[in-house]
Simulated scan of single mutants.
Amino acid sequence: MTTSGTFAVADRAALSGTERIDWVDYAKGICIIMVVMMHSVLGVELAAGQTGYMHLLVAFAKPFRMPDFFLISGLFLARVIDRDWRTYLDRKVVHFLYFYVLWVTIQFGFKAPGFAAEHGWAHVANLYLISYIEPFGTLWFIYMLPVFFIVTKLARRVPPLLIWGIAAALEMTHVTTGWTMIDEFCARFVYFYSGYLFATQVFALSDRARAKPVMALIGLVAWALVNAALVYDGCSEWPVISLMLGFAGAVAIIVMGTLLAKMQWLGFIRFFGEYSIVIYLAFFLPMATSRALLLKFSPFDIGTISLLVTLCGVIGALVIWRLALLVRANFLFERPAALWIAPKKKSATLQAAE
């Protein structure tokens, strides 16, 4: 498939200005809920020293939770990859690095007293500096995106199937060096690159699911059964199987998003998807706060506490966003004009992908 073919589909989709694609936002909404759920559930269980019923759902989503997010992030790259380097770096590197620097500093502001109490302020300073080499906490996703954008543009004249084959091989080797950027690049780049390379097929898949919803539902049920069987049997992280489950799960999320968009059900998920990166940046604070309060004062079981913390993380992040806009602290979620290195586009609001 040629880059121009991908561009044609993305251009038809016209994700620019105020136009958006409904199923993409639904899919991103499902993704961000799963991401917040994972951090919330595992955090509650670690603090409580026991697991709850939400652990099963987190385990079920593990094979595809990040693959689908990265695949969707690469989906519209063909529309911008041939821009000049200055514009490209501004949109795809500086943009995300601004939010990484800002929010890693905010997170350290909240966590520094605890770190200092245990190891001293010198240790806190070292941790902060290291966070620019080793991504900190929940923010590794927006740290990795600029790396993927740069690698893809640099490699755009290399035969695409060769790049894809190398990326798939890296995923199946399950590289473990202890360095997040290396390990996550090897594990996730194949999905990001697939979003870029196979955009035509992705949109065609969505069109087929919209045209044949019954068959799409049957496919979702079959996928869910196979995914659950492999996860709970302990096979989901085996080489080849992990890659297949990653793509199968990404396809399932695309189909789910398409069916929800077709029926116009659960519109709040679409809203979450539209502001998925806003949620990703800010959910740590309401998540941590609600976790501490619920574990101390709530009469609920661990599973229910995990569910409530997930809800607080998602909704609380949006509340923080609205409050920031209300008090004119727009810089928390919008890059200031002074930090643009190319002519500013109409909307500066952070988006996961163009």
Rank of each mutant, 00 (worst) to 15 (best):
F297A: 13
G303D: 04
T177M: 09
G52N: 04
T87R: 05
V214T: 14
V314R: 02
Q264I: 03
L266A: 15
T258S: 13
K92R: 15
W121Y: 12
I315C: 13
L75N: 14
L308Q: 08
P159L: 02
V44K: 03
V124E: 09
R291C: 04
W238Y: 11
D183L: 05
F283S: 15
L225N: 02
F284Q: 06
R335F: 06
N330Y: 00
G257D: 01
M37P: 08
G49P: 04
V202S: 14
P343N: 11
A27P: 06
L326M: 15
A167N: 02
I315H: 03
A168H: 05
R188Q: 15
M54F: 14
G313D: 02
G114M: 09
Q264K: 15
W103R: 02
A248I: 11
V93M: 01
E134G: 12
G313H: 04
I277W: 00
I218H: 00
P213Q: 10
A61C: 13
K344C: 13
A348C: 13
L205D: 02
G246M: 05
A125K: 02
I241K: 03
I253V: 15
A199V: 12
A209P: 02
G267W: 01
A78Q: 05
A338D: 08
L293I: 11
F300P: 05
V221N: 02
E354D: 13
F69C: 06
K62H: 07
F198S: 14
F300L: 14
D301F: 00
L75A: 15
S206A: 15
F99H: 12
G249F: 00
A48R: 04
R328Q: 13
E45Y: 08
G273D: 06
E334R: 14
Y143F: 15
A216K: 06
V319W: 01
L77Q: 11
M144G: 12
F141N: 09
L15M: 13
L220T: 01
F110K: 04
P336W: 09
P113C: 09
I142A: 09
L266E: 05
R291G: 08
I302S: 09
T51D: 04
V255P: 10
F268S: 10
G74C: 10
V226N: 03
R335I: 04
I279F: 07
L161M: 14
K344N: 08
Y53S: 11
F141G: 06
M244I: 15
L293N: 03
F331R: 05
I106A: 07
T6I: 02
H55E: 10
I254G: 04
E274H: 10
F283I: 03
S4W: 00
H123Q: 08
T87N: 05
L15N: 11
A155W: 03
P113R: 09
A47H: 12
Q201W: 14
Y128K: 02
D207P: 01
G313Q: 02
